[in-house]
Computed example of a mutant assay.
Amino acid sequence: MLHVASVLAILGDFYFMRLHTRVGSAAIAFLLLMTLAPAAATALESAPTESFHDVDVLSDQAPAATMSVESAAAAEPVSVYRFWSPVYQAHFFTTDVAERDAINARWSNIWTYEGPRYTAFSTQVAGTIPLYRFWSAQLNGHFYTADVSERDAVIARWPDTWSYEGVAYYVYPNTTSAPDTVPVARFWSSASQHHFYTASVTERDGVIRNWSATWSYEGDNFRVPAAGVPVDQPPVPNPGPSQPGNPGDTKNCSDFRNYTEAKAWFDTYYPYYGDIAKLDGNNDGIPCESLPGAP
């Protein structure tokens, strides 16, 4: 490694050279560059590189996918993958293949993979806007919006409920004049306290027609490339039975004889009221893990 004293000595020698031989400033700069370059190259080679780490999408630590507006592949849309959780009555969307694979590998008992549902952009291209992502540890779900005012309102009013995760990916605004785009509809369920998004007209109309009591249609949220929407859509999630009354914090794990009983009680009320009795201490979807028969 080149020390400060060595650099000063080099500069002194160059200054002496200039006084006595009238070497131009450009030559001095070139000589200095040639002297420092090997040290700079060595420093770059030895610098640590950033490595990808596991993404815990079920905690408020989960970062959104990293974006770079300078990407050479910015003009190419990427798949947006969708998951459905019958446990949380929620959907999750990501363009991050590593995040998709981590969920499939670690939480397939909670999140059911539904495949790519539309396409978007991992970096911003002309005419697109950011789609912002939030995570709620209380509600066990994500929220997405392309509206800056709505993003700022959520950050300001509900910081204890929604953790802002940054930009998920980039989409077209509803007012776009870009050709070959389709709208993404947004629904809200007061029962599950979650939003649902779909770029499929068939799926949108089916939810409006069959489950309007569970999912309220909120209109189109943004637009995406039409070519990325699958033609054949899987059936939308079963909204489940009618909502039971809130039991409150009336149960402890000791009130159940085994895990099967605890899980049945938990699954009955969790989709509507969350872990109201605090039976799932580590928030992994498995209540009363100390009881006989727990996984």
Rank of each mutant, 00 (worst) to 15 (best):
D220C: 09
E114Q: 14
A153V: 06
E218T: 11
Y172V: 05
S177W: 00
V229A: 11
R133W: 00
S108Y: 05
S177K: 02
A146E: 11
T128G: 00
E150G: 06
S192G: 06
V207D: 06
R186P: 09
S200V: 10
A168M: 01
W162A: 03
E150V: 12
G141A: 08
Q193R: 14
Y132F: 15
D180G: 07
S177E: 13
N104Y: 01
N210Y: 12
D101V: 05
S149C: 04
N174K: 12
P116H: 08
S189R: 05
G228L: 02
G127T: 01
I129V: 15
S190T: 14
A168D: 01
I155K: 12
Y118Q: 08
P230W: 08
H195E: 01
A102Y: 13
W215T: 01
Y144P: 00
F121I: 10
R209T: 14
S192M: 04
D101N: 15
Y169A: 05
V154A: 07
F121Q: 02
E218K: 11
E150R: 10
V167P: 03
V229I: 08
G166K: 12
W215I: 04
T175E: 15
T119H: 09
S108Q: 11
T198H: 04
V207C: 07
F196Q: 08
T214Q: 13
Y172K: 10
D205N: 15
E150N: 07
P116W: 00
H142A: 06
P116S: 14
S216E: 15
A156V: 03
W135E: 09
S212D: 14
A126D: 13
Q193P: 02
P179F: 01
G141V: 00
W135P: 02
V229C: 11
V201A: 14
V229Q: 11
E165Q: 15
E114P: 00
A227C: 06
T119K: 10
P230A: 07
F134D: 01
Y164T: 12
I103W: 02
L139H: 10
V224R: 03
Y118G: 05
Y172E: 03
V154W: 02
G166F: 13
N104A: 13
G228N: 04
I110N: 13
V154F: 03
V224Y: 01
V167D: 04
A102K: 09
L131Y: 01
H194L: 04
P116K: 07
V182K: 07
Y118T: 13
V229E: 13
T123W: 02
A168Q: 10
I103M: 15
V224C: 06
A227S: 15
F222V: 08
F143V: 02
A185L: 03
A105F: 09
G219V: 11
H194P: 05
G141E: 01
F143P: 00
W162R: 04
G127I: 02
D147K: 10
T112E: 15
T181H: 05
P173I: 08
Y172M: 08
A178R: 07
W188L: 10
S149F: 09
G206A: 14
S189L: 09
V184D: 00
V201R: 14
W158F: 04
S122F: 02
Y132N: 06
H142M: 02
H195Y: 11
Y170P: 00
Y144S: 04
E150K: 11
V207Y: 04
P173S: 10
T181N: 08
N174I: 15
R204S: 10
A213S: 15
S189F: 07
S200F: 07
H194D: 09
R186G: 08
